[in-house]
Write a protein that binds this DNA or RNA. Structure first.
Length: 297
DNA sequence: ACTATGTCCTGCGAGC
DNA sequence: TGCTCGCAGGACATAG
């Protein structure tokens, strides 16, 4: 399941391969829920567009496009998403630097992947979109379980703060007064964006905090440990090219390596790497949750 | 306003 | 061997 490190790995691979290229034509599949904009609108926005940049916001991939001359008509602005309660209004620049351009937004969901292939490569089952590039290659979106989504917009904004950008004080503030389990809070993209089930479990293990602890009950010392643990885990995972569990591969079809570094995720019943106690598996927020009952309090 | 839960979707592995 | 069943989970809708 692509979380921040996997999406970042994909972003880097994509940026290397498609920035500067142009989209000649687009094929979109017949699964309507994959497309959050009308398919015709996506096709119009993409066809002829020049790829300026590939960025990441949380788990979203943002492909910045300069529309073709023919299609300069502006897309509707992104609907204003409800602001998280404690989010401060960022100083008033409306839309941001690229508001003038078009953005192709892709969320990979659980099993989504993006591949840059030659035009004659076999088309995998569950391929939902293909963009023909001027270089002769194709950018393909494949997603067996169809939790992934794509759409086009301008001035894409999303709630939550990047866990690798936030400072420690703001991090601590996010959890203040919350009764929900800390694991649930970590998965809430409106608070922090980019953490998913794997890295939430791994971060809590490194911080020595039980997943069911009420978020608001964490001491400042624990929050400091958690802040550092998250940064450490994400940084290491990005360096390893992400974790390959089930369907994850980067744009070249290469798996990540971080799964060998998992200390609790997917290790229910096995011995804790630190103390040897059996790792417990419980369900929190409807998600499989793994922790060491001795190391995590 | 916050929190918890059900829903979507397919592949895979366990069990018989 | 071949079948059924249950599980995996990110984001969103809905209910409490």
């Amino acid at each position: 399941m692509p979380e921040l490190p996997e999406v970042e790995t994909i972003r880097r691979g994509l940026a290397q391969r498609i920035v500067g290229d142009r989209i000649n034509s687009v094929w979109l599949g017949d699964k309507p829920q994959t497309f959050k904009s009308p398919p015709q609108e996506i096709a119009t926005a993409l066809e002829g567009a020049h790829v300026c940049d590939v960025r990441r916001m949380g788990k979203h991939i943002v492909i910045d496009l300069r529309p073709s001359k023919r299609n300069q008509r502006r897309l509707p602005e992104a609907p204003l998403e409800r602001q998280p309660v404690r989010a401060k209004r960022a100083g008033g620049k409306p839309g941001g630097a690229s508001a003038a351009g078009t953005q192709w937004i892709i969320h990979l969901g659980m099993t989504g992947s993006l591949q840059v292939t030659s035009a004659d490569a076999d088309i995998l089952k569950h391929t939902h979109a293909i963009a023909d590039l001027a270089s002769g290659r194709q950018l393909r979106f494949v997603d067996p379980r169809r939790f992934g989504r794509m759409w086009v917009t301008s001035g894409f904004e999303t709630c939550g703060t990047e866990p690798l950008h936030i400072n420690e004080d703001d991090f601590a503030r996010i959890f203040h007064g919350r009764a929900t389990p800390i694991k649930s809070a970590l998965l809430n993209q409106k608070l922090l964006r980019g953490l998913g089930n794997i890295y939430a479990d791994e971060s809590l293990f490194r911080a020595g905090i039980r997943p069911r602890r009420r978020a608001g009950s964490l001491t400042r010392q624990e929050l400091t440990r958690l802040y550092k643990a998250i940064r450490e885990v994400l940084t290491e995972a990005i360096a390893a090219g992400g974790s390959s569990i089930s369907d994850y591969f980067d744009v070249e079809g290469e798996p990540g390596l971080f799964q060998t570094q998992h200390r609790v995720y997917g290790r229910g019943g096995e011995a804790c790497v630190r103390c040897g106690t059996a790792i417990k598996r419980i369900v929190v927020a409807g998600r499989g949750t793994h922790y060491c009952p001795k190391c995590q309090r």
